[in-house]
Structure formats: C-alpha cells, structure tokens
Design a binder for these strands. Structure first.
Length: 483
RNA sequence: UCCUUCUUAGCUCAGCUGGUUAGAGCACAUGACUGUUAAUCAUGGGGUCCCUGGUUCGAGCCCAGGAGAGGGAGCCA
C-alpha cells in the first residue's frame, strides 16, 4: 500500500513542494474544492485542495462527511488563513463511502454540526470521530502510558492480577458471578443449593473487584508493584461517577507507611497530569475552549472559577491539603454552612461517614484544592487497614478532587496477624478461605501500604468531562452494555 | 435502589388556560459556486408529537401504567 504520512507530522512540516500521501476520514468538503481530512493522529485536520480537473463529478459526490479517502499531492504553504500547509491533490482514492442523505437508510449519523453528548453516547461506536472524543481518547491513552512510565521509572513491577477470582471477601462491592453452568438447570447439592463443585473451576467464582490482595502478595517479594487493569462492580449505581466495568491502578509497596503512601499518590497524580499537559496540549486546549463555550450559556453563579487549563496547572503547582478525618469533622461542624443548616445532612457527631456534600465543601469551598483525608474511624473502613493506637481509627487515606470526589482510596495495611484476624472475625470474614492472604502476615510480614486510583475518574478530571460514560469507550452501567 | 426532570423532523429545541393544516435553526436533497474554514446563495423534501390505555365534542398539551434518557443521593474508585 502507498505509505502515508500522519497528519500530526505533516502539519508541522516545512512545505517544499514534496509529494505526500494522506489517508483519513472526511470531516467537511467545502466549495467543491476543500476537503478537511482527519486521521486521528491529532485534533487538527489537514486541508486537501482539489483543483479543477483532478477528478470527475462522480468521485466528487462520494466525498462526504465520514467517508474514508486517500489523497496524494504536493505539500504547499496554504493560501488560506486557517492552516499553515495544505495538500494540492493530484490523485484521490475513495476507500469507503459514507451515505450522507439522511432520507436513506444507513446514512452516516454524524453531521457537520454540534451534537449533544447524550446523542453521541447512543452512537458510541462512531463518537471517536468527533473532535471531543478524539481529544478525550488521545488523552486517556497518554494518561495510561504515563502511569506505566511513572512506575517503571521508579522500579515498580507491573503485576497482572487475575480477572476471575474465587475470593469474595475483598469487601469492595457486589460481584458479577462467573460460571459455565446452565442457569436454567444448574446442578444442586444435598442442601438444595447450586453445586459449584460441578462448575468450571470446581468452586464459585466472580469477576474481580480489586487486585489489591494479590498485589500485597507480590509486594512481599518485589517490594514495589502495581496493577493496572479492569475491575468489576455489580452495584446498581446510576451516577456520573460509577461504572460496572472500570480500570483501576493499584500500587502496593513494602516498607511504606501512610505518609509514604500519600507522597507516592500525590507524586503520581502530579506526574500524569503534567505529562498530559505536555503531550496533549492541543487536545486539552480544545476541551478547555469547549467548556468555556458551554459556560457562556450558564448564569454567572454557576460558572467555574477556573478554566480547565487553570485547574490542571493549579493542581500540579500545589501540594494537596492533608487533614485527618477528626480535623475534617470539626471544620465541617464549625462551618457556617453547618451552622446555617445548609447541609442536607448536618455534621454533629464523630464517627459518621462523610456525605459527598461534605467532601465537596471541604475541597471546593474550604481548602479550594485537592484534599487528602486520613485516619478514618475503623468502623466505616475495610478490614485490612492498619489500626491506630487510639483503637478508634485506621491508617486510611482518601484523595478528594474538585468535581470528582474520591479519586484515590488507600491505606497502610495491617501487617500484625493477630490484629488482622481479630478484625476479620469482627467483620465475619472467612478467615480459613483467605489463608493465602494471611500467609503474608505469617511469613516475613512487613509494614506496607497501597492505594487504588480510579482511572476513569482521573480521565474525567484531566478532560474536564462530567459524565464517566464519556471517558471510557464502551461504558458498562446498569441496564446498559451496548456495543 | 431512592428523589427529580425530560422524551415533538436526522440533530438541538419552540409549541399559547386542551381547538382546526405542529414550527424554527442546523443537517439533508437539487442547483450555483475554484481560496473555502462547521463556506455561502437559491429552491425543496422531511413528523407513529416515546409506547399502551383513559378523560373529552376535540389531546403534542390533562390522567394512569410502562419504556428510555438526563441530573441529584446512596454504595465506591
């Protein structure tokens, strides 16, 4: 095949009349002369100029939005104002048509005009071809790459923890069952329950909700490890921040206490946001402008104080605020917001879980920056978190981001076998089944810590999008698994 | 799962206290146009008013049930 040059490269090339080939998808065709072609390598299109006589009328008719073309021609300085260079076409080939006549069946649904995000969600298989989703998914890629680069450069080992797991004690949420049994005539045991001994794995299995426990096993050998993979929660959550299938980054480090853990999480977030700002400047600038345009239609009060670019820059220029749960409760209790009863749930006693309105108040009103909350009451946190000497709190930390809420949840782990077992008994967890996890505490236990970072929530923050369904290609949510 | 709002042309939306033939912008089609930038100009076509049932002389509008979507809450990442 005729080799092509990617548009990203071409638009930064000095035009010396060299012959080039561009292949991509038509965005617009103006004045029967100017084709705007996009190939996904950049948000920018290249302008291909079709001078008279280059091709016939029948071919011209086939140059429609969405069609796939390859053009060959000379790269010249553009006479027009919108671009530096353009291709003076000498040959054009149509690889694939796209019907533009909406009165015909199977016409191309993307029109050269603005579409709502809700509509684009219904055609998620085609929305990559829009500027907005092109930008989002290039940024998503960069963030994923930056995560791997960050950990690799620090000497972390990337672990692939299992997707199918027999453990259901991670306590992170409802699980999806994995089985090859016929659900209409599943074999029963003597007690009348489904006999999973006859199932594929010989026991009940589920999709993982977290790779953390396996991560801890590996950390007890490699020191510093991380996982970055899909996780599944069968919760009936219908929000702009939850998915049934999402990607999570979970580092686990031996010889780390909670402070080391927070330092690492903060460094990671700073690093990947900075990476995206440096490597996806144009995409972020496009999304920045998109949000500014959107805000023009809003009343003054609802507009955000900072633009997306300012928000991202602010985030990497400033340390996150670190506050204990106990301090947070007294800040909230003393706040005018609480006294004037503006919270739906008033903050009175120590020990209650914070509502998202409280988290938002701390992040967006009080500190006006990302906040790390630490040392939560043990009763509202998972079994594996290390207990403090006060007997009431655990070494947990949540990182709260403006507009997103909880983006990271982590803790120093309880490495003391007796305390861990006691806690598991209190919480009615199957200690025998989890012998493999407890073995880390039996054989060479050490202080260690880790956290989980919700990848889509990170992408939400960096793109300035507000619905998590718009930052994953094919979102899985309750009652929705199209495509 | 709970609360709440919405569903009218391909898309985004108007639609008067229930009244006769349901509108706009964009998109689309046809024509013009070789320096356009979501081109422009002219002309034109396009509707199961989400579904089912009810009230009424008459329903896009009112009532009941259902479906789908958005926003908020809970669970969390």
């Amino acid at each position: 095949m005729q080799k092509r040059t990617k548009i990203k490269e071409l638009i930064n090339t000095e035009p010396t009349g060299q012959q080039v080939t561009v292949k991509g998808w038509v965005r617009t065709f103006r004045n029967t002369q100017f084709i705007a072609i996009n190939d996904g390598s950049t948000i920018n299109n290249i302008q291909a100029v079709l001078n008279a006589g280059v091709t016939d009328d029948a071919t011209m008719k086939r140059i429609t939005p969405g069609s796939c073309v390859g053009v060959t021609g000379t790269l010249i300085a553009s006479q027009g104002k919108g671009q530096k260079v353009e291709v003076a076409v000498t040959a054009i080939e149509i690889y694939g048509d796209a019907e533009s006549d909406i009165s015909k069946p199977n016409s191309y649904p993307l029109q050269p005009k603005a579409h709502s995000l809700e509509f684009l969600r219904e055609i998620a298989h085609l929305r990559f071809r829009t500027n907005t989703f092109g930008a989002i998914f290039r940024i998503r890629h960069s963030l994923a790459y930056a995560v791997h680069k960050f950990f690799n450069d620090k000497g972390f080992v990337y672990m692939h923890t299992p997707i199918i797991t027999a453990s259901d004690a991670e306590g992170a949420g409802e699980m999806f069952k994995v089985t090859t049994l016929d659900i209409n005539k599943a074999p029963l045991n003597e007690a009348g329950e489904i006999d999973f001994k006859q199932d594929f794995f010989g026991k009940a299995t589920n999709l993982t909700v977290s790779g953390q426990l396996e991560g801890e096993l590996a950390a007890m050998a490699f020191g510093e490890v991380y996982t970055f993979g899909p996780t599944f929660r069968a919760e009936n959550s219908n929000t702009t921040r939850h998915l049934a299938e999402f990607w999570m980054i979970e580092p686990e480090m031996a010889f780390f206490d909670l402070n080391d853990n927070m330092d690492l999480a903060e460094e990671l977030l700073h690093y990947v946001i900075k990476y995206a700002l440096e490597h996806n400047r144009e995409d972020i600038e496009f999304l920045n402008q998109r949000l500014l345009d959107e805000e023009k239609n809003k009343p003054q009060i609802e507009r955000s104080e900072m633009s997306l670019l300012e928000k991202l820059q602010f985030c990497i220029d400033n340390k996150f605020e670190r506050v204990t749960y106990t301090e947070a409760i007294s800040i909230l209790r003393e706040s005018n917001h609480n006294k004037k009863k503006k919270f739906q749930y008033l903050v009175n006693e120590w020990g209650v879980d914070l509502q998202s309105e409280h988290e938002r108040y701390l992040v967006e009103k009080h500190f006006k920056k990302p906040v790390i909350l630490t040392d939560y009451p043990k009763d509202i946190k998972a079994f594996y978190m290390r207990q403090n000497d006060d007997g009431k709190t655990v070494r947990a930390m949540d990182i709260l981001f403006p507009g997103i809420g909880e983006i990271v949840g982590g803790s120093q782990r309880e490495e003391r076998l007796e305390l861990l077992e006691t806690r598991m008994k209190e919480m009615h967890l199957p200690i025998e089944e989890m012998y493999w996890y407890l073995d880390t505490r039996r054989f060479g236990a050490c202080p260690h810590a880790g956290f989980g970072l919700g990848f889509e929530r990170l992408v939400l923050f960096v793109t300035g999008m507000t619905n998590i369904r718009d930052v994953i290609a094919f979102p899985r949510t309750p009652k929705s698994a199209e495509f």
